[in-house]
Design a protein around this nucleic acid. Structure first.
Lengths: 192, 192, 192, 192
DNA sequence: GTGTAATCGAGACGGTACGTCTCGTCTTCTC
DNA sequence: GAGAAGACGAGACGTACCGTCTCGATTACAC
């Protein structure tokens, strides 16, 4: 019996969309730190309570709003070799990271994850771990192919790839480019 | 004679110390997001204006407070080889990263750097770049020794090392350990 | 049906009363210059915003708080002659002026009216003019009776009566007494 | 022997003048409530301490600054009769009261006198009582001449005259004019 | 001339209140 | 029962002034 019989007025899909759009717009136009629940409610033409009823923090609204857009852009198709798979993954990733709106969003979410431990946990589980799993598929496939160098360990590969990307996004603010991809692939595949 | 002639009552060194200590204490006890200028002022027994006079944001107070402690813990002595230098640097770094109070501080500052672009610029210049320069010394020394693999490029080495460390601190929250150091050294020195 | 349909949570009558009481209490206990919006909010157990939402300045809070008490104490009943009406009005007025709490309130409001022109306009319209109108009724009735001396002009009677009372309250701080009432009545009725 | 032998650097007459001028200028340009000790010091090019050393409050600075100007404008010459003396006094007074800058100053000082009891006492003693004494001379002279009506009592004459003037200045903000003077003289001299 | 002492401009100090902003909750009527 | 509206208690923000303090520099008189 899945069906708890819904009673009363059903949730408004229109309000939901208006909230997510408003959040993305404000974040894009004025920056994440200018984003407030009050502002979202005002722009969406929605009561504050409607937001609080469905999302615990403004970061969750944003995470929800950004989910569809960022999801599934990463190709996991088999390109025949570890190096080729890696290259495809990295290239797709750096296109995301070089999208200013998207990287601003990610930086804000990562920041919020540090400041709010409860959101941090959700962010890690719902976003970061999924990304790790995606790259993990590539690594596991390489291992099965016998394509994977003995070092570094599987976990370290993930740390190293995502660490480098995130560090450029958060710290140096330099664009990710083909040279970086080449170096990372070389390093992880024994310079083949 | 650099000396701008000081006019008026000189800055109180006592107040400065009280402010930095109070900030560190509150951040340690209650977390960065519970840190407020009002709280610092109250605990330090100081007027709020005295804080605003010398620091633009609470993050700058913390950066200043943490500066002395975090500085110079990194050994740049010559250990005879690139691998040995790297290992020493990484070992020292992960001891810092595994210090809970210190890593909490760093996570908060990195978060704030994302939310406040002006502080971000200061954080990058006054902290992150200095750390890069330190590791840069090791890489440059290796190049002179003829010890440095052709790949990855100097800049990528820095991104990769700091990226991995920061990612563990910010994203996976897993301790840095000897296995990680070993893998990083292996990867960067052609698995020697 | 005047009724603008009220939307949202209605104004809290309880908060309103708590604010007015707190303001009067603080003014009475510590004096008008020790009265602050923060203090009122704290004593009333109310957010500052709730005060700012409904009153522009602390003087307006006090004016509102004092309104009910000061109102209607002035008898306008017909005592048969101009002299008798005047005497009744003056006697009632000086009882008000000799009430320490009330005269402190009036002095503070008159002072604030000088310092803040916008409040001054409100004070004049909502308090001073109403008082003038009350005495005006007595003067007009005397004129209809044929009881009114040709001099002074109607407006000057009001200036003279209220001027004398206010001057004692503001400047000499001497109590108003029966002798003053007798002299004023004599002067205004041709010493009858 | 008045002469305490002055030791140390003597008081700067230049600073004193600069302070009084600055106070009058700011009060005239921005209004009394925008007048601050900091503002006076800044405009006068003077340290705040120099103001606090010589005047207890900003109202005292203003009282001092206005003293010379307001003083002695009131003629006490003998015009031969009580009515003529009164008329001369009132005419001079209403010219003062109709001077906008001067009446703004007086309103501010009277307001401050209500809010700050210590200044109030000084204001009463140093300004209001002197004005009463001046008019008192006229009344006393009338009594000696046998010119004075039996009513109202001497004190009430003063209350009534100054009360009416102050009330117009503080409350109705209407200009004082010849008609008022005529009515007051008539009322106080038995309509002679 | 060489103290000694009080003044001066400057500006930092510990405080307090300001008026605003946003939080997350609540209370109403409407759909 | 969900939603829009908007008032509520709470509390931090950054600013403005308060009145005090601590500097170095200046200016008088006393020795």
């Amino acid at each position: 019996m899945t069906g708890e019989q819904a009673r009363g007025r059903p949730r408004s899909e229109e309000a939901r969309r208006a909230i997510l759009n408003a959040a993305l717009e404000i974040a894009a136009e004025e920056g994440y730190s200018a984003l407030t629940i009050e502002g979202i409610a005002a722009r969406a033409g929605v009561g504050k309570q409607t937001i609080y009823r469905w999302w615990p923090t403004k970061a969750d609204v944003l995470l929800d709003a950004g989910a569809a857009k960022a999801e599934l852009r990463v190709p996991l198709g088999d390109h025949g070799s570890y190096a080729a798979d890696l290259r495809a993954f990295l290239t797709a990733s750096y296109k995301m990271a070089n999208d200013a709106a998207l990287s601003d969003l990610l930086r804000a979410l990562m920041a919020e994850a540090q400041l709010n431990p409860v959101f941090g946990e959700r962010f890690r589980r719902d976003f970061l771990e999924r990304r790790r799993d995606a790259l993990g598929v590539i690594v596991d496939r390489a291992r099965q192919r016998g394509d994977l160098p003995s070092r570094p360990a599987r976990g370290v590969v993930l740390d190293l790839v995502f660490g480098t990307i995130w560090y450029r996004v958060l710290a140096t603010r330099r664009r990710l480019d083909k040279a970086l991809v080449d170096d990372l692939v070389a390093v992880l595949t024994d310079g083949a």
